[in-house]
Design a binder for these strands. Sequence first.
DNA 1: TTCCCAGAAAATTTCAAAATTTTTGAAAAT
DNA 2: ATTTTCAAAAATTTTGAAATTTTCTGGGAA
Lengths: 232, 232
Amino acid sequence: MLKSKLSTPQIYDDLHMQLVTAQIPQGQKMRSERLREDYDCSANTIREVLFRLASEGLVIFEDQRGFRARPTDPERLHYLTKFRIMLEQEGATASIQHGALEWEAQLAASHHKLSHIESKLSETSLSGNTLKLWSLAELEFHDTLLSACDSPFLRSSYRRTYDQFRQQKIMQPEYGYHPENIVEHQAIVTAALKRDAHACRVAIYEHMKRNLRDGGASGTLHPDALGAASTG
Amino acid sequence: MLKSKLSTPQIYDDLHMQLVTAQIPQGQKMRSERLREDYDCSANTIREVLFRLASEGLVIFEDQRGFRARPTDPERLHYLTKFRIMLEQEGATASIQHGALEWEAQLAASHHKLSHIESKLSETSLSGNTLKLWSLAELEFHDTLLSACDSPFLRSSYRRTYDQFRQQKIMQPEYGYHPENIVEHQAIVTAALKRDAHACRVAIYEHMKRNLRDGGASGTLHPDALGAASTG
DNA sequence: TTCCCAGAAAATTTCAAAATTTTTGAAAAT
DNA sequence: ATTTTCAAAAATTTTGAAATTTTCTGGGAA
């Protein structure tokens, strides 16, 4: 692997990518010395980058024992999903209320790109490259959905949560394979463009519930992430 | 200032405390060399701690220009408040649904402590120490309110947001002075113990709206943080 | 065979100094 | 008087190595 002297932010980007795509497997030790050689820099630069990745949850740090890619953890996947559902429901509802024509247009565009990729995925088996393409398009779709919510902290929090979710999920063989995704994404975008906040919340829950601990058993009764909104 | 060789985590705690209490004023430069002397450690240890504080938003980092305590920014305070309202409304609603007797008891306890401190605050002018005491009690109250929401990511996200909010707000002379706080906290706890999620959401909004950009002008119509839930 | 301890090896953390970049301040030119 | 230029000073970033801690390995005792 020949790399021509990457800068510190580039090293960060590269390791981030390797973590969310599980090219660095979950739980694997990340030794400073090894990475120092790979990137041809000092141990301190590596340490700095790893601390930043740790603060975002992709890496865990233990005092005097160094760094490891975060191991798989079903409970963590459950709670990440729960938080994602809540953030996306709240963000989408706010976008529906505040978003203008430009938002609708961007949402339609990102959904068009995503559904194009997804229709090809169902025909051919996915190579590593098309999987990356799909993953990027899906993130862009979800982010566009929230882009008019007028809450920068919600958006950055969603992004961090999505990355961690992806790191947990990507090694499961069914990641990206679900044909249901097509109709689920369609339901989300349809509800959003109809400005039907409640239907959009339900669609978001239906899209993600399979990653909850119980697979969303009590789903139709409580479509909100924290089991809350149905009480109003 | 005589410190007997603090460890790295202790240095982190100390700087964190100084930042959220604005003992390090907003916008002030934080020079490695100066801090290295204060804490009697190497520049690298300081750098590590400052990067961590930067990832939590209390410090800003500019390449080749070092670190600064985050400056005051009214827009930032607005968006921090908006996000805090959303997280607390969602978390409280979930706690109301899931919380058992133990939760009620802890909530009553933390509110009792808080209101005791607040009743004294209205009589005497607050010294630096009672302000710290109040601040700690208020955080504990809000955290207890969310403690039964069964969403660890919501709680840690709330904590980070609260710290940043406090850093922005603490220098404003009215911080901690509001007599309204007493009745507002009472309204929150009453609604929560009555298991009235909607009333609790309204009370949370009413408690925080003065920190929004417009002071909550359209408040009574839209008690939800992102202006959303009233559409359902 | 299993358990435990000591010594060796490896990895992490801290340190101090060199190298790079930014900031400062004064002199020269417009 | 204002702007520009350049050199000195100050601060940040990187580096390589020392010091500390953990992990590994092998031998001896139960």
